[in-house]
Computed example of a mutant assay.
Amino acid sequence: MTLLEVIENASVSSEPLASQSEYPIVLNPDDVLPNLRPKFESPNLVSLVNPVVGWQISKTDSEVIDLGKNFFTKLNRKLKNPNDFDKDEFIRILNQFLEKIREKAGVSIGIDSSDKGYTVALIEKLGSVMGKDVAGLVLDACVVLETWELVEALIVNGHVEHSCYSTLVNKLVMKKMSHLICVCIKHASDLGASEILCILKYFLCPPKDAYGSMVNVRKEWEKQALSAIERASDKGLTGKKARLAKDASISLMMAHDGFSAPELCLHYLLASSNVDAVVLASSISKLNGKEMMSLIRYLGKWLKKYERFPQAVPCSEATSKLGLKVCCWIPKLEDVVNWVGLVLDEKFSSLVLHPEFHEELRSMEGMVSSLALEARNSA
């Protein structure tokens, strides 16, 4: 079997992971490197590589790996009978596992075990020590048992492997977990074409019963917009902070007003710097007519906003300096124009041949011309 065939077979295989790798965690080099010594008393100084001996992982790493393997086996067995496995039992055995790791690693959690956010705190502090195999299985269990706060903790703290996102996004869409889909967009480093297509289809033409799950996203944007207005009105702010607060209030007002809840969710995808243009183009090319119309109208809204508010400027600094977290997720004019370009590149023939798109395109053409003229005049 050729190497290419091995790779192809591995990519086609959809069998779930049944066992852990031998060394699933990042080993501590401080306990390994000092013990390495040349295998021969007189190593060959000319050779680029000389064998060494004395490689041995630390006792702590070895114990943590064993804990992970035992927990993986236990959780994997319980997930085979999900009807006999409930959320409370899952939280209990997960806490026990992470507490054992905490004892081995000597990490302080800083929160009482009776507190509501205890398991989330354990994941934040010790998730990286679980190992990717255990983390993947824990993610599966969280989705099956719908412990969504733990799913969010795993995503936010970077414990979801790239290969897991395709399945995760599809499951979140099926469960209509709009907030967590937005969290995936914000934290996934490299979403694939299938994930982006799934997200686009969901937010461009959401099921009727999905709107309720988008309420929290809308509330967050509303809360941030009101907070920005309060900051802009605060006479205690002066100089650069006062200007930043004013810019943030304009940008947030622009990003919030006139957009539906699904469109507010799309802001995250439009503003993301982690989405590859080639992958995005591939996803856009697979949208149907209804979805394309929704996307064109959404992008048209943004062009109209930037035409109406030319004073709007990027204000991502407001995220750290004013605590306005969504400011770094407000699409820039450049983002909007790039998406418009991709839409035209991928769907030009369809847009020209179908009259229902013509009015929207003429409107966009007028706004783009206006923005281009303004850019030339201000240059």
Rank of each mutant, 00 (worst) to 15 (best):
V12D: 12
L17S: 12
S19H: 10
D30T: 11
L33A: 08
N35S: 14
L36N: 06
S42M: 11
S42A: 13
N44I: 04
S47P: 05
V53Q: 11
G68S: 08
K69V: 03
K74Q: 15
K78E: 10
P82D: 00
P82G: 03
F85P: 01
F85T: 05
K87Q: 12
I93E: 09
Q96F: 10
I101P: 04
R102A: 14
A105E: 14
A105M: 14
A105K: 15
G106L: 05
V107A: 07
I109W: 06
G110K: 01
S114G: 08
D115H: 12
L122T: 03
E124T: 13
G127T: 02
V129M: 12
V129R: 15
M130Y: 07
G131H: 05
K132E: 13
L137E: 03
A141Y: 00
C142L: 02
L145K: 09
L145D: 05
H159G: 03
V160I: 04
H162T: 13
Y165E: 03
S166G: 14
V169R: 02
M174W: 11
K175W: 09
K176H: 10
H179S: 12
C184P: 02
C184Y: 02
S194Q: 11
S194L: 13
I196V: 05
L197Q: 09
K201N: 03
Y202C: 01
Y202R: 01
P206K: 04
P207L: 02
K208Y: 08
E222M: 13
L226H: 11
A228G: 07
D234H: 07
G239E: 00
G239A: 03
A245S: 05
K246I: 08
K246H: 10
D247H: 07
S251F: 04
L252K: 02
M253C: 14
H256D: 09
P262D: 01
A271N: 01
S272A: 06
N274M: 07
N274S: 11
D276V: 03
L280P: 04
S282Y: 06
I284T: 01
I284R: 03
K290V: 12
S294C: 08
L299V: 04
E307R: 12
F309V: 08
P310R: 11
Q311T: 08
P314R: 00
S316T: 05
T319D: 11
K321S: 14
L324N: 00
V326K: 04
N338F: 15
G341R: 06
F348E: 11
S350M: 13
L351C: 05
H358K: 10
H358A: 14
E359T: 11
E360Y: 12
L361K: 02
L373A: 15
L373H: 14
A379T: 10
